[in-house]
Write a protein that binds this DNA or RNA. Structure first.
Lengths: 231, 231
DNA sequence: TTAAAAAACTGATCTATATCAAGTTTTTAT
DNA sequence: ATAAAAACTTGATATAGATCAGTTTTTTAA
């Protein structure tokens, strides 16, 4: 059974919809003349929560995190790989302000599309709008899963979730090189870096994973899944 | 500045879009012949997470909670008042399954719209689709605020949030009669009912609120807001 | 009206995880 | 190549909030 809360909640949204193929030739041309590619260095901010959103942002290349800023610690909503929209929710916000911040994990290229043009496409092309709705909804489903994870599961379950997600959805392999820091990992799990570290150590002792420098291998997939579900 | 995370995060989505006014006469008729009103008693389930969604659900009358079920405790995503959609995210899910459960707080009436007809409207009427996108996005913004609240704020901030939300967005008055139980309140804040109770007591001692039986009055709005922001 | 059941309240523990305070290793920059 | 900085590791302590175990109040129903 498909169930957002028993499946490991993921930090990336892997489903991809090819929205732009539904545009007419004229619409595609209109889009072409009203978009611009911008390069961002590692660690730079692509969007700032609360600031005016004059563009829809599409991540052409790279890896970014989308997060909420507040008076307490930041909350990472998701990480987004290339070929995904970054700011759809923001542009339809009544105030046209970014409802979250976006910053890069690595050098990235973003395509900025004029918000007016984008809205025009949505208003005039129902098939395009339909695809956008699909994107928004996969998004929502993913965030809900993560919401559940961070507010209901405890530390071991959260760490198991992250490992499974990185293995299955980000790197698509049992052994992968982790080029994000323990601190990033702590942010992603909503735990302290010390706690993440201790749990990694436990998982290694229990032969669920193997750690060799920056490389992590998933040894016992089923057990991790179990911990993710019940932890 | 509009900022989802400094404003008290709310459990209801108060913005309302009149989606149906954008339908043509024929579309409206098509809708009319393909919808059906169903009554639900207090405590009954309108939608069950994981089950097949053959209809879009619109809440005509009543008050419901939308929540995720999992192996741990349920997570209430939002409460929804009358004249709002209940299951938009679900119908666009690839599997057509409900991604969350919905049950009523009081006797309610729901309008069920055939999912195929609804999708047809979206695919053919871009203005209608645009409105649906707006609904989805206000929704998302609200859930993000709540996500931040439940995963970053601590107990006092969460309780302050709920009181402010009930006062400002649900009842629209400083003094309101709370006809949901302490247990419901605990569910909404993600705390234990004992903790909620203790904090209510503290707030009363500190003259932030007054409690008289089931009635709650907001006495010090600013202080509550401050607690919501920094607590 | 009164007994039974449910909800609310309160104090005493318990526990998960943060925080603090060292070390140690790795990375970076000169 | 080496010093400085950053990241990681580990143990000790602190704490927010859950859980438990009662008592009191309110609600329900006979």
């Amino acid at each position: 059974m498909h169930n957002a809360t028993t499946a490991p909640s993921c930090i990336v949204n892997s489903t991809h919809f090819d929205c732009f193929e539904h545009l007419t030739k004229e619409e595609a041309e209109l889009l072409e003349t009203n978009k611009r590619d911008v390069k961002f260095k590692k660690g730079e901010m692509i969007a700032k929560q609360g600031s005016f959103a004059s563009h829809v942002v599409f991540l052409k290349e790279g890896l970014v995190k989308v997060y909420l800023e507040g008076n307490q610690k930041d909350l990472i909503l998701k990480i987004v790989p290339d070929n995904h929209f970054l700011s759809l929710s923001s542009v339809f916000d009544g105030n046209n302000t970014f409802i979250y911040s976006v910053s890069t994990y690595m050098d990235s290229t973003a395509t900025l599309i004029s918000i007016d043009i984008f809205k025009q496409l949505v208003r005039n092309n129902a098939k395009f709008a339909h695809q956008i709705i699909n994107v928004l909804n996969t998004n929502t489903a993913q965030i809900y899963g993560r919401f559940y994870c961070l507010s209901r599961k405890q530390s071991h379950g959260r760490v198991a979730d992250i490992i499974l997600c990185l293995s299955e959805n980000v790197f698509n392999t049992k052994k992968f090189k982790l080029n994000i820091s323990r601190n990033d990992l702590a942010d992603l799990t909503g735990l302290s870096s010390e706690s993440v570290n201790r749990i990694f150590k436990e998982f290694k002792e229990d032969k669920l994973i193997d750690i060799d420098g920056k490389s992590i291998s998933v040894l016992d997939f089923d057990k991790l899944q179990e911990i993710s579900t019940y932890g």
